[in-house]
Structure formats: C-alpha cells, structure tokens
Amino acid sequence: MSQPLLEVEHLRVEIPTRRGVLTALDDVSFAIAPGEVLGVVGESGAGKSLTGAAVIGLLEPPARVAGGRIGFAGRRIDDLADPAMRRLRGKEIGAIFQDPLTSLDPLYTIGSQLAETIRVHLGLGRAGARRRALELLNEVGIPAPERRIDQYPHQFSGGMRQRVVIALALAANPRLVIADEPTTALDVSIQAQIIALLRRLTREHGTAVMLVTHDMGVIAETADRVAVMYAGRIVEIGAVRDVVLRPQHPYTAGLMGAIPVLGARRERLLQIDGAMPRLGAIPGGCAFHPRCAHAFDRCRSERPELLPAGPSAAACWLHAEADHG
C-alpha cells in the first residue's frame, strides 16, 4: 500500500457515564490509502459510527478520544484545536450521514446550503458559488438543477436529498469521505443508484472512502478492503475478496454465512446465535467467546491482538495457535 491518507492507530474512545467510564472503541487501528474504499461492517453498536465521528473530530460529548493517534495526509489530527479541525472538515474530509431526510436544514434552499459550503471552503463569490452549486447538482444527477437549486429540502424525495447530501459532502473535493450507512434510510430501489453514484464520483475524483454499511453486497461491489468490527474493536481486516471468500475470524465467517442480495435487511442475515454485548458488559478475553463455536480456554482469559492471519489480519487465537504450533 502506498503512503496512507488516513492512519488510525490504537484509537481508544471512552464515554464517561454516571456508572463509570465505558470504553466504546479499543485499540482500533487501520489505514486508508488515497483513492481507496474501505468498507466497515459489524453488528449494530459495534462502534462503526463512533470510529467515523472520531476521524472527523465530531464525537459527541461526553464521548472522547482517550488514546491512540489519528493521522491524515501525514499529520496528526486527533489533537487539533477546533478551528484547525474545522478547516479540515468538509474541505479535506467530507461526511455523509445515514438519513438524508434529516441531514439538510429545512429552512434553507439546497442552493444556499451548497453555496455557503462552497464559499467557506473555496472562497468563491456569490455568483461563482452558485455556478459551482449548479455544476455539483448536475454531477450528482439532479434533473433540472436550475429550477431545483432554489427549492427547499422538503420538496425533494429521499433519494434526491441524498444526492444533494453527496453534492454537499463532495463540494470542496475532499480527499476522504466518510459515508456512514448512506443508503440505509432509503428505498431499496434507490439504494443501488446512490451507491453507484457515490462509487462513480469518488472514483472520478480519486476520493478515498470509509464506507460504513450493513450490506455485504455493497461491500463486495464497492470496497477495496473491509474492516469487520465487533464490540468496539476491529476483529478482521483485509482485501474484500479475501475477507468475503476466506474469512479468518469466526465472527466474520458468521457474517459471511449468507451474502445477501443488494438491499436485503441485515438483521435477518446474521447467522450467529446470541447478541453482541453491551458496552458495559464486554466479556474478558476475546469479546466474541460466548458466541464462538471454536472458543477454548485461552479465549476466555486473554484478549487476542489483530495479527496477520492468512491473507488478512484477524484478532483470533486460532491463528496465533496455528502460527506458533
């Protein structure tokens, strides 16, 4: 892999609560190369969104980065002061959230929301910003942009709104986009279109993407590499083909049990008995051991590190045993 664009090392995110400090992310390490698409999968609550929020510096208090390092384009960004981080957001790192219906301010036209974003980052004048906004709307496939630009979000359908959100996220041509379940809230029939649009645009502009999704079909079609998260950790990471076809971690194997058709609801395809532990009740040793068919003594007492396992990397004692024995 070339010099990575984003480098997350041993990231630890804590959430102080009345009943003690919860560790929501622990020892999360991964990298994204320029132009690369990293898929992030895992059950609800695994920490996918928190990882994305930590990267763009928008963790909601009381959640906070308690350890590790986030590097972007060769410089450390997790300790940046707010104004410096703000200049990075939108300009260098864009974000797309799950629900397009609520991502846009209902009181402003989409044109004015595009224009303000463009003006903040590109320093264009009023007319220039509007011209750029029209270009963007055209690029994301909004029909009749000259008319639509002066309309309000409620006048757009969900799919069209997500196109506007994508236009906003890409307005300043960022080098990395964090797309947190960009299609979950949409109609199944629209999901594929939006993913295709996102894929086309980021490819054209060489934008790297951190794509959080529950949809293994989308991962298989879109991502270069995939990270599998479980209970606040990455349990497996590797090239999509390897992880999908030859999962190394028993949890990944469970997830891959059935690759769904595009758009199928993911709750139904989990083939693993039991549920992911709540944050306060993550078991010692391998967090997955209560649900793992292969668990043995070591799994209950020692936490496995993310180590090379076959073509990928996995955090599972089965591989360490194989290596050493």
């Binding site: 763009i56 209902p106 402003y108």
Partner: peptide, 22 residues
C-alpha cells in the same frame, strides 16, 4: 442534536454560522 446541525459541522461551516444561521 439534530442531524442537519451535525451535518453542517461536518461540512466545515464556522461555529457562528452553525449556531446562529442554522
């Protein structure tokens, strides 16, 4: 707490604009 405010911050808008404009 709404998504559009989070998204406005993610777009990199200055605090003043997020807090007062939106």
């Amino acid at each position: 707490r709404t998504d559009y405010i989070k998204f406005a911050r993610a777009r990199g808008l200055p605090n003043r604009l997020v807090n007062f404009g939106h």
